[in-house]
Design a protein around this nucleic acid. Structure first.
Length: 435
RNA sequence: GUGGCCUUAGCUCAACCGGCAGAGCAUCGGAUUGUGGCUCCGAAGGUUACGGGUUCAAGCCCCGUAGGCCACCCCA
């Protein structure tokens, strides 16, 4: 066992993971740019109150999953690592007076989030997310546009068959009334509720509807439905979102029990799951409307809607998938091989190998240099296994100003003057690709 | 935070009833002084996660800790 290892719930992203994840980020960033979103970035940590006030003090995320930054607590500073991106972005919106920008303000952010929960496959204490936010437009069309963007992202990276769960969870105008009605219902049946559900009744009643306890099936069947409890404005908004999605041809599943874990959500809520998995902790994306958040953080009343992509889980879904399409393969493919490797086993030539490689790179070519003193056979073997198409062999003919340019695929080689090397290699590469 | 399963080389895994810790892959070297992805040979790599206990003897049995995984919880 090594003396040190990555802290629980965190992991090192080695090239085999970081490379595909970077591609996911690139696809998402290019896509969002086409929709008019601009990248931004907030600090990794914020005043803890930003999350407590924005996300809600009685949510799991704030109550038990916040990572506090330990420094200087004695000086009254309470910082916490961001558990999600939206609260920080809303704080920035207020701080920078973005209400004076053309509305809606459309931004993206990519990076790590932190939650102190119990790790599991696809559930980490540090995880990566790509996030999209449109702040300042109350209309249902934006909701549909952002869900369509989400659907397109998953399709573009090779997950064309994701399941989009959709719901409306009302707003401050109608949720209290509905909550009162449904808690009253469950109080009447409290004797039949398991302990966990009784606790939820006090703390987070909406969760009861989503219970996995078999004992709850009967009770839940008779419960008042959230959809029926929507006020006219929320119902109309929801209907319009669905109509827009239908017009765009975006498939979704109505899920009246879908409840989001953060207090700031209003009206539209959605989550995205990979095709097969029914597993509950496998959401690969989620989002919704948060019309009260900016105001909670000290701004004017401002509507907003956002969507987060769980990059770790998207990657996992792609890796686990048996029937990968071309898009998925392109995300997971290893990095392209170098065009050529400069090899040579005479220690006296090391400087020349380094110089030649540098010149070739200066000419825009992807060239690896073997700067060791292993025997030539080993170097060629490594170059071939790397997938390089050419080897530049530096050896005796250097005395007459020449190196060997070897075609590793064809197994042929010829001498070429070092002064011509870049042009020669470029030409060889061109004819090679055509052949 | 609750319950359960697991942990042997860098990776994937063996090791009979408790009796000398092994293989494949990967790494490095060798097989004609400077020419290949295959093949052959070899080397290196281990406090059997960590700490205790039982026993003549523990990778194996018992306890604790850590980490991973699964189901909850919750979310991405």
């Amino acid at each position: 066992m090594p003396t040190f290892r990555a802290p629980r719930g965190t992991r090192d992203l080695l090239p085999a993971e970081r490379v595909p994840m970077t591609r996911l980020e690139r696809v998402a960033a290019d896509l969002a740019a086409r929709y008019g979103y601009h990248p931004m970035e907030t600090p990794l940590f914020e005043d803890a109150a930003v999350f407590e006030r924005g996300i809600g003090a009685v949510t799991d995320v704030v109550e038990k999953e916040l990572f506090f930054v330990g420094a200087r607590a004695d000086e009254g500073e309470r910082w916490a690592l961001r558990p999600e991106p939206t609260a920080g972005i809303a704080r920035a919106y207020v701080q920078h007076g973005m209400q004076t920008w053309p509305q809606p303000v459309k931004v993206t952010m990519t990076g790590s989030m932190f939650r102190y929960d119990r790790p599991q496959a696809g559930r980490y204490r540090q995880f990566w997310q790509f996030d999209v936010e449109a702040i300042g437009d109350p209309g249902p069309a934006v909701d549909a546009e952002i869900i369509e963007l989400a659907a397109r992202f998953y399709r573009d990276v090779g997950l064309p068959d994701v399941k989009i769960l959709l719901n409306s969870i009302g707003d401050p105008a109608c949720r209290p009334a509905y909550l009162e009605e449904m808690t009253a219902y469950y109080r009447r049946h409290e004797a039949r509720l398991p302990p966990l559900e009784r606790e939820r009744l006090e703390r987070n009643p909406l969760r009861i509807l989503d219970s996995k306890d078999p004992a709850m099936v009967d009770v839940n069947a008779g419960a008042p439905s959230m959809t029926d409890g929507l006020c006219e404005a929320c119902a109309g908004h929801f209907e319009a979102v669905r109509a827009h999605l239908d017009a765009l041809g975006i498939g979704y599943t109505l899920e009246p029990h879908l409840v989001r874990g953060l207090d700031y959500y209003t009206r539209t809520a959605f989550e995205v799951y990979p095709a097969g998995a029914g597993g509950q902790q496998s959401a690969i994306g989620g989002g919704g409307r948060y019309d009260g958040l900016v105001e909670l953080l000290g701004g004017r009343p401002t509507p907003g809607i956002g969507f987060g992509i769980g990059l770790d889980r998207v990657l996992l879904a792609l890796q686990e998938r048996a029937d990968r399409n071309a898009a998925a393969e392109a995300i997971l493919a290893p990095e392209p091989a170098p065009l050529a490797v400069v090899v040579g086993s005479d220690p006296a030539d090391t400087a020349t190998r380094l110089r030649l490689a540098t010149e070739l790179r200066g000419a825009g070519l992807a060239v690896r240099a073997d700067l060791g003193q292993r025997k030539l056979g080993k170097q060629l073997e490594a170059a071939a296994r790397d997938g390089a198409h050419f080897a530049v062999i530096v050896g005796d003919e250097l005395a007459s100003g020449q190196v060997q340019l070897r075609d590793l695929d064809a197994g042929t080689q010829r001498p070429t003057p070092v002064t011509n090397l870049a042009r020669d290699l470029e030409r060889a590469a061109r004819t090679h690709h055509h052949g």
